[in-house]
């Protein structure tokens, strides 16, 4: 229990469809990270699923890459699904 590395916590709430990143915490290993996540982030909300990932295992895009990575799509209107007529019943999806 000497080393307490940082863990990233992802939680799927009771009616949630996907795991969401909720924050991070320190714990000596995965099992305890899950216990700690339960106390820090779920507040005993039954029926949740928790993923814990060592922060060092997460590879993130760098802020400097923002332009080349994400912006081209904005100028390519044919990539936006806005030209499809939608039936009335599913207007608000």
């Amino acid at each position: 229990m000497k080393e307490w590395p940082l863990w990233e916590i992802f939680i799927r709430s009771q009616h949630g469809l996907a795991h969401k990143h909720v924050g991070s915490l320190h714990a000596p290993d995965g099992e305890m990270a899950i216990n700690n996540a339960r106390d820090v982030y779920t507040r005993r909300n039954e029926g949740v699923s928790v993923w814990v990932v060592k922060a060092s295992d997460v590879v993130a895009s760098s802020p400097g890459d923002k332009g080349p990575l994400f912006e081209p799509a904005n100028s390519k209107v044919y990539r936006h699904p806005t030209f499809f007529p939608m039936p009335e019943a599913v207007k608000h999806i």
Binding site: W4, L25, H26, N36, D39, V40
Partner: peptide
């Protein structure tokens, strides 16, 4: 002894 333990102990206390 650690932030996480602090929160966990307090949770148990509240229970």
């Amino acid at each position: 002894p650690a932030l996480e333990e602090d929160i966990a102990l307090t949770n148990v206390a509240l229970d």
